[in-house]
C-alpha cells in the first residue's frame, strides 16, 4: 500500500463485490418468482439475467426476486428500475428476451415498450 489512490482502488473493487449493499446500485431487476412464475420458467429467466450481467461485466445492478404480483398470465414477470425512474413491469420474459432487455433498458436506458405490461 503506497498511497490513498491505491486504497481508493481497493475500496472500489470491494464495493463492486459488495454491490449488494443496495445504495450503490444503479438499477435493480426484480424477477417474479411465485409458484406461477417458476412454473412459467422464471428460474431460467433469472439464471439468464445473472449470466448476461456477468458476461457483460455489469456490476452495479441488483437482482432480486419477489413473489407473485398477481399478473399470473404474464409470467415470467420481470421488473426493471433504473436509478430513481419509475419501475417498469415486463411480461413474458423468457430466456430469449433477456439479452435484448439488458441491452436496451439496463445499458441503453430505454424501456422495451412492446413487452411492458399495461
Amino acid at each position: 500500500m503506497k498511497s490513498l489512490a491505491e486504497l481508493q482502488k481497493i475500496k472500489e473493487r470491494a464495493l463492486q463485490r459488495k454491490r449488494l449493499g443496495g445504495q450503490n446500485a444503479r438499477a435493480r431487476i426484480i424477477v417474479g418468482m411465485g409458484t406461477c412464475g417458476i412454473a412459467a420458467g422464471a428460474r431460467d429467466t433469472m439464471t439468464a439475467i445473472l449470466k448476461e450481467l456477468e458476461q457483460r461485466h455489469i456490476e452495479d445492478v441488483i437482482v432480486t426476486q419477489t413473489g407473485c404480483i398477481g399478473l399470473c398470465e404474464y409470467e415470467p414477470i420481470v421488473q426493471v428500475q433504473v436509478g430513481s425512474e419509475e419501475l417498469v413491469t415486463y411480461g413474458k420474459i423468457d430466456t430469449a428476451r433477456v439479452p435484448e432487455l439488458i441491452t436496451k433498458h439496463i445499458q441503453g436506458g430505454e424501456p422495451v415498450a412492446e413487452w411492458i405490461v399495461k
Partner: peptide, 17 residues
C-alpha cells in the same frame, strides 16, 4: 476489503498524507 469498502483505513491514509 469489506472494511475498506466502508471507508476503512481512509482516516489513516488521510492523516498520513
Amino acid at each position: 476489503e469489506e472494511y475498506i469498502a466502508y471507508d476503512g483505513y481512509f482516516a489513516l491514509g488521510k492523516a498520513l498524507s
